[in-house]
Lab assay of single mutants.
Amino acid sequence: ETIMEVNLLKGPKGLGFSIAGGIGNQHIPGDNSIYITKIIEGGAAQKDGRLQIGDRLLAVNNTNLQDVRHEEAVASLKNTSDMVYLKVAKP
């Protein structure tokens, strides 16, 4: 597993990826991690090219996303300014 830091500039459609996982909404049984499950065509993440489906999202800005509820992860992604710092684990 490789840890990678990505600074992503939000586009008109936001960050351009979808997530799944978290406490109460496990993407993988027994694993509370938050995973990237979709990269949106023409979105910021696709244009940047570094994020991939299956990457594990560890942090957004200063918010640690390990062992959080799905709703908390979504809220932390929404409550960001235009430049967003992401910390991901690549499988």
Rank of each mutant, 00 (worst) to 15 (best):
S18E: 08
R56A: 10
P29K: 09
Q26D: 13
E1N: 15
H70R: 06
I3V: 05
N62M: 08
L58H: 04
E5N: 14
N62F: 04
Q26A: 12
L51N: 00
V88N: 01
T2E: 07
G42E: 12
S18Y: 14
K13N: 04
A73R: 00
A45E: 01
F17S: 00
N64A: 08
T63R: 13
T63A: 11
R56F: 02
R50V: 13
H27A: 04
E72S: 09
E41T: 15
S33T: 13
V60G: 01
L15W: 06
D55A: 11
G22C: 02
T37C: 15
I34L: 09
A44W: 04
K87S: 09
E5M: 15
Q66K: 11
A75P: 01
K47S: 12
V88C: 10
E71V: 14
D82H: 15
Y35K: 03
E41M: 05
A59D: 04
I53M: 11
R69M: 15
H27Q: 08
N62Y: 07
V60Y: 03
S33G: 13
G54Y: 04
K10Y: 09
S81Q: 15
H70T: 07
N7M: 03
L8Y: 09
A75L: 13
T2N: 15
L51I: 13
P29V: 14
H70N: 10
K90N: 04
I23F: 07
D55Q: 15
L65I: 12
P91Y: 05
I53D: 11
A20D: 11
P12A: 12
Q46R: 13
L51R: 00
N32D: 08
I28S: 13
N7V: 04
G22Y: 02
E5T: 10
K38F: 07
K10G: 08
R56C: 14
K87I: 02
I23A: 08
G43T: 13
E72T: 12
Q46L: 05
G21S: 03
G43L: 07
L58D: 07
D55S: 10
G42N: 08
S18L: 11
D82R: 11
D67Q: 14
E1G: 05
F17P: 00
I28L: 14
Q26N: 13
G42A: 11
T63L: 12
G21D: 02
L51W: 00
D82E: 03
L9R: 10
V6H: 02
A73W: 02
A89D: 10
N32I: 03
I23M: 08
G11R: 05
P12Y: 04
P29Q: 15
Q46W: 13
A73I: 05
K38T: 13
M83F: 07
H27M: 05
S76H: 15
N25D: 10
G14E: 04
N25K: 13
V88I: 14
G43Q: 08
V68I: 14
I36L: 05
L51M: 08
S18Q: 13
M83W: 12
A59G: 11
N64F: 15
L15C: 03
P29D: 15
T2P: 04
D55K: 00
G42S: 13
T2F: 15
V84W: 03
V68Q: 07
Q66S: 11
K10L: 07
G49Y: 02
V60W: 02
E5G: 07
Q46F: 15
G11H: 12
A59R: 08
R69Y: 13
A89P: 01
S18C: 07
G42I: 02
S18W: 15
G22E: 02
Y35H: 04
E5L: 11
T80M: 14
P29R: 12
T37H: 09
S81W: 07
G54E: 05
Q52C: 09
R56E: 05
G42K: 08
I28V: 12
G22A: 02
L51V: 12
K87Q: 06
G49R: 05
G30L: 08
S76L: 11
K10W: 02
N64G: 12
M4F: 11
S18A: 12
L15I: 05
H70W: 06
G49P: 07
E1D: 15
E72K: 11
N25P: 06
K38P: 00
S18T: 11
L51Q: 00
L86W: 00
K38C: 15
L65Y: 05
I34A: 03
K13V: 10
L86F: 07
E41H: 15
A59Y: 12
